[in-house]
């Protein structure tokens, strides 16, 4: 398969970026999207040009590092996957593919397609934990957790922190990310004691960092590689309301 790639190139955080066009020929349809970029980079190195920088590590859809906005969609034209799980068979021969970095005020570009997502860590540091020190925990079966609660909690905990929700949202809102963490803990008895403080602090941090607000377009849910539901956002709103008035 042959492709025309228009890729955002930006030397560093301060530099002005621009789109550069590359042509790539004879790519196997079984190739993953990132492997296709590897091939491009191999060619660039051969021409003594700097390769395109993008984040990636696990290449199996779990570390959450890969983060490309491909033809208008975070993680490209397939559902429930990350960019590293996208395969070229999802494109047509001769396609023009535009690749952009995640765009959001709290996610500044570091270089080319790599962005800084430490804002997410900052939010977790505010309250995305249960304050338990190592040692002294009761027996794991001492507190019974209904299977349904555990399953729902796991649904939310599956978030990989890739930021596709922010990238997809027209308001660059981080509600799905934050609510996934809030829900994960809110659904477990262990998370209850700190629930109010957690949601208050995490939401305050989210606002402070400059993410947008939710306007319920639910684009985040559509693009989430882990299919996290917007019902977690509702749960967070509920938790938040309780934290304020309850």
């Amino acid at each position: 398969m042959d492709f025309t790639l228009k890729i955002w190139r930006q030397k560093n955080a301060k530099a002005k970026g621009k789109f550069v066009t590359y042509n790539l020929k004879d790519v196997s349809s079984n190739c993953s999207f990132l492997e296709m970029l590897d091939i491009l980079n191999e060619q660039l190195v051969h021409q003594n040009e700097e390769p395109v920088v993008f984040d990636t590590d696990c290449r199996e859809g779990i570390c959450g590092l890969c983060s490309l906005y491909i033809n208008g969609r975070p993680h490209g034209p397939d559902d429930a996957i990350t960019t590293c799980q996208l395969h070229m068979r999802k494109f047509k021969d001769g396609d023009i593919i535009v690749v952009e970095p995640w765009r959001a005020r709290p996610f500044p570009v570091i270089k080319d397609l790599m962005v800084d997502r430490t804002a997410f860590d900052a939010i977790i540091q505010e309250g995305g934990f249960i304050s338990v020190n190592t040692g002294g925990a009761p027996d794991a079966n001492a507190i019974i957790i209904p299977k349904e609660a555990a399953e729902l909690s796991m649904d939310a905990a599956a978030c990989i922190g890739c930021g596709a929700c922010v990238a997809a949202c027209k308001n660059a809102s981080a509600m799905l990310f934050v609510s996934a963490k809030v829900s994960h803990f809110a659904l477990l008895p262990q998370g209850k004691p700190e629930a109010k403080e957690r949601v208050r602090k995490m939401v305050a941090k989210m606002d402070e960092l400059g993410f947008g607000n939710c306007t319920n377009t639910f684009a985040c849910e559509v693009e989430c590689p882990k299919l996290i539901s917007v019902s977690t956002i509702a749960r967070m709103n509920r938790e938040f309301l309780w934290a304020k008035i309850g």
Binding site: A137, A140, G191
Partner: peptide, 10 residues
């Protein structure tokens, strides 16, 4: 025990 206390949804 510790992981359950931390909220790991086993």
């Amino acid at each position: 025990d510790h992981c359950v206390a931390q909220g790991v949804p086993f």
